[in-house]
Amino acid sequence: MSRYNDMFTALNAKNQGAFVPFVMLGDPDKATSLRIVQALIDGGADALELGFPYSDPIADGPTIQAASIRALNNKISPNDCLDIIATIRKDNPNIPIGLLLYSNLVLARGVPQFYEDAHTAGVDSILIADVPLREADRFVKQARASHIDQILIAPPNATEESLKAIGELSSGYTYLLGRAGVTGAETAAETPASELIDKLMQYEVAPPLLGFGISTPEQVQNAIKSGAAGAISGSATVNIIAQHLDDVDTMCTNLCEFVAAMKAATQK
């Protein structure tokens, strides 16, 4: 059984959905990043979605771009990111850890090497923002070989053909886009996405987590009401980091409280 399966099983038993915060690894630096991730876990995150800083993040809005830039300015490399994950994994053996990153970072390391190193560090899933289904084959194959779940994206404009392919290839969870555009809390997710979720269920995809534009407990509640297995919140989480760069204690307290409030909204 994978950590995602265990998580969804346990949450179902408690009649809860999942709350998954996203942060950029190494933002703003390695030591703070470790404290940040631990604060998310302490706040009650069911799983983690973690980014690798990248120079040209085309799917991200200003908040997450800025997080990338902060980390890159501190010379955070993919090796640093894997180090942080390995440390987190050592202290937290059960929480599912997902990566969200861009294809060129995977290619530069070599696709097999990247997946093997991620697995060794304790990663459960990989989502590559600029690898659509059409280019996914070799990544899915490698993921299976390395015991990692390849996460696929179901956008609101997905065709039946795409949904069918996601059903065949997806494992772990399915990243359900709440709206068009790039990441950001400025534009809210368009819930309910229940129609799309119903269709996804017909194709037996891995449990869908709704992301993009999720920043309030109400949105988490709506996502779960409309049939999603949970919600992912990135920019709203990263905003808290950006607002408290000069006071890490307050940053971590606020992150912990934010996650707790979002998590409380997952009760069905």
């Binding site: 085309i58 294809s103 600029d130 659509p132 059409r134 696929l152 994206i153």
Partner: peptide, 23 residues
């Protein structure tokens, strides 16, 4: 899936977010 070839040897392709594929 594509009517025209999307690659030149290994080069090219459509490495974009899923969202842009229909466009």
């Amino acid at each position: 899936m594509n009517n025209l070839s999307s690659k030149f040897g290994d080069f090219g392709g459509m490495y974009v977010p899923e969202l842009l594929i229909p466009a």
